[in-house]
Design a protein around this nucleic acid. Structure first.
Lengths: 198, 198
DNA sequence: GTCTATACTCCGATAGAC
DNA sequence: GTCTATCGGAGTATAGAC
């Protein structure tokens, strides 16, 4: 995306998306606002509206970027997990937990209800790619039908999201509850959920 | 809870809590506001403040009621599941999915971050009871240590919350995605996560 | 115990200067 | 392309009448 010249220090459009991630990671979707993002970048509250027509279009761009980055994180985690298909799928649960903790932009942001009004081809493509990646990783395991694959992938996503969401919410407030520990538990659970393992 | 006389039609305090559940179920925590609850009961926006000093105290009362009701739903589901300890624990995942769908007041409401400021003995007791119930159901299964029990219970809660949260978010937007179907998948996943089953 | 009215704050969004 | 200024709307909370 051709970086547009001139703002405080460069490309405000990209900076807005990046700052949105930071805000989401620190405060969650509840407290997300265009004004807060602008404040964080020390630009006026009107400046964002030169780059996005309204709040939902900014969120849509954040969603697209999140889907893209999450897809990359998932592929990297799968590759790092080796060749065993079950192991590769399970690794995505850990990648999801880490991604949400780092960016605050998990599935509730990527598939936020308010975005259904917004037509955004980039977003559509990136979310599609993300789902394709998951289904391919699922299909590579010992599932016997498409329906079975979908259910396995959904279960994997559900555990990952459950751990990530509860962690973000502060539910695991014990001493040893680091991101790594929670991500590890998510991977372990995802592994267990796959019936096709040895 | 001595039902205070006189308001539109009775006990406004209780009505506020009840209407809060409805609002949460329909719109989620994001859109929860004292004003919206008042509107729903057709009382003025000032009326709630005669019963709760501020928004967080109302939410705290909702949290306490939710913890109490969820505990009851979980115990009922466990009993309906029979005698097998693993089956009883797994059934709680289904009960959680149904409860969240019906009331909108799941763990993010019960353990909402803003409530840490609020001292509320009823809430404290009900959340404690809820956790005790889960840990006892976990301990009855073939776990070998307290730490193992905690991890099993956490995993059960994580899948349940993952399915419930994604369902509420509209993620499972397929034709066959009824509450019953999702609750069933949560139970199945919870069952699989318990290593102590035959 | 509830109402009306009001003060304050924050956000979304627009108009117009530069 | 960003700023200042501003409007309108919604929410939290309080004051004072009844």
């Amino acid at each position: 995306m051709g970086a547009n010249r001139a703002y405080h220090h460069g490309d405000l459009r990209a900076a807005l998306i990046s700052a949105s991630f930071d805000l989401l990671a620190e405060q969650g979707l509840q407290r997300f606002s265009v004004a807060a993002v602008a404040r964080r970048l020390e630009v006026s509250s009107a400046a964002p509206y030169r780059h996005f027509p309204d709040r939902d279009h900014l969120l849509s761009a954040v969603s697209a970027a999140a889907a893209h980055d999450l897809n990359a994180a998932i592929l990297a985690a799968a590759d790092a997990a080796g060749d065993d298909p079950a192991e590769r799928l399970a690794a995505t649960a850990g990648a999801y937990v880490r991604f949400v903790t780092r960016t605050g932009a998990g599935l509730p942001v990527i598939y936020a209800a308010e975005l259904y009004r917004v037509t955004d081809d980039a977003r559509r493509e990136h979310t599609r790619t993300l789902m394709t990646t998951m289904l391919e990783l699922g299909a590579a395991t010992a599932t016997r039908s498409y329906e079975e694959t979908v259910l396995l992938v959904e279960a994997t996503i559900a555990v990952a999201h459950g751990y990530a969401s509860l962690y973000a919410e502060g539910f695991f407030a014990r001493n040893d509850s680091t991101v790594d520990a929670i991500a590890g538990r998510a991977v372990e659970a995802a592994r267990t959920l796959n019936p096709g393992r040895t």
